[in-house]
Write a protein that binds this DNA or RNA. Structure first.
Length: 580
RNA sequence: GGCCCUGUGGUCAAGCGGUUAAGACGGAGCCCUCUCAAGGCUCAAUCCCGGGUUCGAUUCCCGGCAGGGUCACCA
C-alpha cells in the first residue's frame, strides 16, 4: 500500500482546499496517480538475498577515485549476490551538467573493468525501470509532490534566497540551528488567501516538506557498514521541488530508489547527516526504505592532519591520473578492494592467480574509519600485477599507453614489436625462475626501456660522468679487452667468464672472495669492472642482466657505445691534463 | 558552534574479556649476486587519555581529547 501517511496531518488551516491548492501548484494534466507507479515498476524477480545497487553520479564530467571505490562496492555487492547494478544519472542540477559526462563515466569505469547491468546509456534488455535520467522522470516526482500537498504534508514556500540568507544569519548569530523549521518556517502557516495572492503576483515558489518530526525524538538506525547509529528525527521543512519544478536530490532519490527497486544504497558518509530527511521522506511517501551503507571517504595526509581527497588540490583523485601515469587498471581495482575489505589482501596472497571476483566481498566488512590513500601500496600492487603478465600482454598494455600518452619517439619504438618483446622478456624476467618487478606503471616502464634505442639512449647518459671519474687507461683496457673477446653467441656464464678475465687483466680482482680478502691489491672487483661496462652500454649504474642487454642491442651497437664512452673519457682526461 | 561518525605500529589493518597483539606496504639489516629488481631470512615500530565494571580490559560502560563529516532551491 502506498501513501499511508503515517503522521497525523497537521493542518493549521483546516478550511484550506488542499486538492485545489495541489492542482494549482502542480497543474500538470496527464499525471499518473502515485499508486499507479507501483505497477509501472513492478518488484524485480530476483533470488532471495540478491542486492540491487546503483551508481548515481551527477553528470559533472568529473569521475573520481571515490566514484570508482563506490562503484566497485556496488558492483561487488550486486554481483556476489546475483543482483543488479545499474547507472542512474542525477542531473537535477542544471548548472552542473557537462556534455559527454555520462559516456565518460561509463568509459572510465569500463577501463577498470566495471560494467553496469542496466541504466543510462547502457544497452540492455533489463532497462525496464527507466528513464534513468532524473530530468526525464519529472512527472513521477511531480505526481508524488502533488499528493503530498493534497495530504497537507507539503506546501509552497515563497521565501526568496535573500530572506533565507537573512534568517540563517540571524540563527547563526543567536547560535541556533540554521534552517527552515518550526517558527522559522514562515510559509508553513500562510493562509489560503496569502498563497493565492502570491501566486497571482507571479512570485516563484518551491515546494517544501511539512516535516512532522521533532529533534526531541531520537531513534536507532542500522547502517550496513557503521552498524547502529543514533539518529535524531528531522524537523527541517526541506525543499522537495525547486522553483523550476525539478526535485532536489533528497526527494528524487527516495522515489527513484524505491521504484528502481534498489535494495542497498551505498553512498559516501557525507550523506549520513541527511539520513533523517531521507527516512522521513520515505515514511511520508509510504515507502519501505532500502538498506543504507555509508562508506568512509578516502583520505589524504595534508601536513599534520588527514583530510578528504579533494578535487581541487589532489590530482590523484581523478581517474585520468591513473590512466596517464599508466597504473595497471586491475591493480587499481585490487588496491581498492583491499581498502574495501581488508581481508581481501590475505585472500589475494593465498590465491595469487585468482580472479578478484571470486573473493567473497562483504559489505559489513568495510572499514568504519576513513582510509588514507596509499600511493606507495598501489605501486606495489601495480608492479606485482604487471609482473604476472606475459610479454605479449605487457606489450599490449604498454602499447595502449604509448598510443595515448607516449611521445612520438615512443610510438616509433613500439612499431617494432619483436624488439620490444625481447626487451620485455628481459626486464620482466620471463622464462626465468624469478619474475622481475621492474615495471610499476606504463609510463615508468616505457622510460625504463629508453636505453635500448639510440635516440633515447643519448638522454640517459647522466651516469657517464660517474664513469668518467674512473681512470682513463683502466677504462680503456677494460673496453678494448672486452671488445676483443665479446661474442654475442656466448651464454651468460661464458660471457661472465670473459668479463672476469678482462677485469683481471685490467687490475681488478676477478673473484669476489679474493677482493673481499685483499682489497688493497686491486683497483676494484669484477663488479666494478662490470659497472664501467654497464654505464657505457646502458647509461645507468643499475640494470638487469648486462649479458642479455648486450645480446639484444647487438655487437655493433655495443661496440659503438663503448667507443663513444671512451671518446668522452679521453677528452675528459686531456682536459684534466691541460688544466694542470 | 549544534548534530553525527571514527580513534590498534609511519600507512592499511586483524582482533569481539585472558593472544608472544596476525598480516601487508613502507623502513633497517643480512643472505643471494656482475649492479639493480625479485626472492629468502631477521629486526625496529601500535592498542588516544582519564575514570569505572571485572579476578582480568585493546576489547564493555561513562567522561574527556583528537580527527573526520554535515548544517543550500549542490549532489
Amino acid at each position: 500500500m502506498i501513501l499511508t501517511a503515517a503522521y497525523a496531518r497537521v493542518n493549521e488551516d483546516m478550511d484550506m482546499d488542499l486538492k485545489k491548492l495541489a492542482a494549482t501548484l502542480i497543474p500538470d494534466k496527464a499525471l499518473l496517480a502515485p499508486e499507479e507507479y507501483e505497477s509501472v515498476y513492478p518488484q524485480r524477480e530476483l533470488e532471495k538475498g540478491a542486492e540491487v545497487t546503483r551508481l548515481a553520479p551527477s553528470p559533472t564530467g568529473f569521475i573520481h577515485l571515490g566514484n570508482l571505490y563506490s562503484a566497485l562496492a556496488d558492483e561487488r555487492a550486486a554481483h556476489t549476490s546475483g543482483g543488479i547494478f545499474y547507472l542512474r544519472i542525477e542531473d537535477t542540477d542544471e548548472k552542473r551538467k557537462v556534455d559527454g559526462a555520462v559516456e565518460s563515466v561509463i568509459r572510465s569505469l569500463k577501463y577498470f573493468g566495471i560494467k553496469f547491468d542496466e541504466g543510462a546509456e547502457i544497452d540492455s534488455p533489463l532497462n525496464k525501470y527507466g528513464p534513468y535520467y532524473q530530468r526525464q522522470r519529472a512527472e513521477i516526482y511531480r505526481s508524488f509532490a502533488k499528493r503530498l500537498i493534497e495530504e497537507g504534508l507539503a506546501y509552497p514556500c515563497f521565501c526568496t534566497a535573500e530572506e533565507l540568507d537573512a534568517v540563517r544569519e540571524k540563527q547563526t548569530e543567536n547560535k541556533q540551528t540554521t534552517g527552515y523549521y518550526g517558527a522559522y518556517a514562515k510559509c508553513r502557516s500562510l493562509s489560503e488567501e496569502e498563497i493565492y495572492n502570491n501566486l497571482k503576483a507571479g512570485k516563484p515558489f518551491v515546494i517544501r516538506l511539512k516535516s512532522q518530526g521533532s529533534i526531541e525524538n531520537k531513534f536507532t538506525f542500522r547502517d550496513a557498514i557503521k552498524g547502529d547509529i543514533t539518529v535524531t528525527e528531522n524537523d527541517q521543512d526541506v525543499v522537495i521541488l525547486k522553483s523550476d519544478g525539478i526535485p532536489t536530490y533528497h526527494f528524487a532519490h527516495a522515489i527513484d530508489d524505491h521504484f528502481m527497486r534498489t535494495t542497498l544504497v551505498i553512498r559516501g558518509e557525507e550523506w549520513l547527516s541527511s539520513l533523517p530527511v531521507h527516512l522521513e521522506l520515505h515514511k511520508v511517501l509510504g515507502f519501505k526504505p532500502p538498506r543504507y551503507a555509508h562508506t568512509c571517504s578516502l583520505m589524504k595526509m595534508d601536513g599534520e592532519t588527514k583530510r578528504k581527497l579533494s578535487k581541487r588540490k589532489d590530482p590523484e583523485l581523478s581517474l585520468d591520473y591513473y590512466r596517464k601515469a599508466g597504473y595497471f587498471p586491475l591493480a587499481v581495482v585490487k588496491y581498492l578492494m583491499t581498502v574495501l575489505n581488508s581481508n581481501f589482501e590475505e585472500w589475494s596472497l593465498k590465491n595469487p592467480d585468482g580472479d578478484y571476483r571470486d573473493f567473497k566481498f562483504k559489505i559489513d566488512k568495510m572499514g568504519k574509519s576513513g582510509a588514507l590513500f596509499d600511493l606507495e601500496k598501489l605501486c606495489d600492487v601495480s608492479k606485482t600485477e604487471i609482473s604476472k603478465l606475459s610479454a605479449e600482454e605487457c606489450f599490449d598494455f604498454l602499447k595502449g599507453w604509448v598510443d595515448e600518452f607516449g611521445t612520438d619517439g615512443d610510438k616509433k619504438h613500439f612499431e617494432d614489436k619483436e624488439y620490444i618483446i625481447k626487451i620485455l622478456n628481459l626486464i620482466m624476467g620471463v622464462g626465468g625462475k624469478k619474475r622481475r618487478k621492474d615495471i610499476e606503471r606504463a609510463e615508468q616502464g616505457v622510460r625504463l626501456m629508453d636505453y635500448f634505442f639510440d635516440d633515447t639512449f643519448a638522454h640517459t647518459d647522466k651516469f657517464r660522468k660517474y664513469g668518467a671519474e674512473k681512470d682513463y687507461s683502466t677504462v680503456k683496457s677494460v673496453f678494448e679487452g672486452f671488445a676483443a673477446v665479446y661474442d654475442p653467441a656466448d651464454d651468460n656464464s661464458a660471457w661472465f667468464a670473459k668479463l672476469k678475465a678482462v677485469a683481471g687483466a685490467a687490475g681488478f680482482a676477478s673473484e669476489m672472495s679474493e677482493w673481499k680478502a685483499n682489497p688493497q691489491n686491486y683497483k676494484g672487483s669484477v663488479s666494478d669492472a662490470a659497472e664501467i661496462l654497464r654505464i657505457a652500454i646502458t647509461g645507468k649504474a643499475n640494470s638487469p642482466d648486462l649479458c642479455t642487454i648486450m645480446g639484444i642491442l647487438g655487437r655493433e651497437r655495443c661496440l659503438e657505445r663503448l667507443d663513444a664512452d671512451l671518446c668522452i673519457m679521453k677528452n675528459l682526461a686531456q682536459a684534466k691534463n691541460s688544466d694542470i
